[in-house]
Design a protein around this nucleic acid. Structure first.
Lengths: 225, 225
DNA sequence: CGTACCCTTGACGAAGTTCAAGGGGGGTGG
DNA sequence: CCACCCCCCTTGAACTTCGTCAAGGGTACG
């Protein structure tokens, strides 16, 4: 789901181009296709019963986007202009019926996505705004940066990052300024940064060696400033 | 995943009994089985890199528990003494290979679980403590209460509810007291309540009719007390 | 060149967490 | 059978983080 799954689409597919901001598919509609990003960036988001938006994930070149197999449970929109390889649900289902690998891959991918989401919740809940933000930078670097380069491209808007990290856009803005003040982040041009990972003065609160009887966890709590 | 899937286990399985607090399987261990709850209550939880715990879901009689197919991505523990039907992974995989229905059901269940988790995040992020709590009561009632009865059994501890709703246990306690003060909730005995759903003075902030161009969402924000 | 839109920065306030101190219930052992 | 003890739950009070409100600057694009 979140990780690359290009192999799944070796079969028939069409390439489509979406303009920045354009909707690719919408939560609630009948699922008709899966996509693989070729260029650009896509966000996957859900809305709760009160209209609040949460960005579930960002997708880059090579990533497989699957928002459901019967009904889409999320909405996909283009963060930048992007090219997507589209494969119809019928084709996918055929592969699932025919091909053991595809089948296993789909289930494994779902489980992986579940794991990611569950742990993402835990981070949103237990980590401070600053911790979440530097985790975000780090994970984006891991996914999109070429080895050896210290250039980081963050095509999405502050609001998107905010809705992904469960923060207000103003807070995200402040966090950017903060990392720029320490020199960890240098803005080369809008959406393009030079990132020098700080030695992260070690997690001052590390996980218990063996979780004595599970409920351990110093339960939430902000750092003392 | 969260919903009942008893049919999946019509094949060979053993019934196991776990005592309150006992661990059923642990995050990171190789996945070896799936379970269906026969009696009692089970919680599924993850730990983030700092040791913080988040309860992903509660399971009751009839619910299928699947914490991964290669490696468990979450830990399952008995909330109460409970009886579980266990089916080995090998058996499950055979069914997946043989049986088209099982296969489709697994994928559908994963997608359903993904949808639930994603929307759960959105609720945790955008809703106030009181809103989350009454949503919890309501959803527990929907899942466990017999039609026509107003009795509600909440076997889990305050800490479990807190870790499920992303709150401090003290806050959960205060919210219980609050609903008891209004009479919406009456404690019959520990863990057993009589619940009279209030007409919920209508969501004062409803979702936009058609989400003009997606980013809509009055973005988070607490109610004014 | 102008006009949106997005981003930044400041001040303030409120929700919910933390800290702290009792109550209560159930289980175990005497 | 009773008493003690441990753990969970409750309630109060103060504090902290982050969201909200507001105003101004930069950038992209028509």
């Amino acid at each position: 789901m979140i990780a690359g799954g290009t192999e799944l689409l070796k079969a028939e597919h069409r390439t489509l181009v979406f303009q920045k901001g354009q909707r690719i598919f919408q939560e609630g509609d009948p699922a008709e296709a899966i996509y693989v990003v070729q260029t650009g960036c896509v966000r996957l988001q859900v809305h709760d019963e009160q209209g609040g938006r949460h960005v579930v994930a960002f997708f880059f070149a090579g990533d497989l986007i699957c928002g459901g197999l019967s009904t889409y449970w999320a909405t996909a929109e283009a963060v930048t202009t992007c090219a997507l390889a589209r494969s119809s649900k019928a084709t996918l289902l055929q592969s699932i019926v025919r091909d053991l690998e595809t089948r296993t891959a789909m289930i494994a991918a779902s489980q992986q996505a579940l794991s990611n989401l569950a742990h993402h919740i835990s981070r949103l809940v237990h980590w401070s705004a600053a911790e979440r933000f530097s985790w975000f930078i780090q994970s984006m670097a891991k996914r999109t940066r070429k080895p050896g380069s210290d250039l980081l491209h963050l095509p999405m808007e502050r609001q998107d990052i905010a809705d992904f990290l469960a923060l207000a856009p103003e807070t995200v803005s402040r966090l950017f300024s903060q990392l720029e003040a320490t020199g960890e982040l240098v803005r080369v041009e809008p959406h393009h940064y030079r990132w020098s990972p700080q030695p992260r003065l070690a997690r001052n609160r590390q996980a218990e060696p063996a979780l004595p009887r599970s409920r351990a966890a110093p339960r939430s709590g902000r750092r003392s400033a």
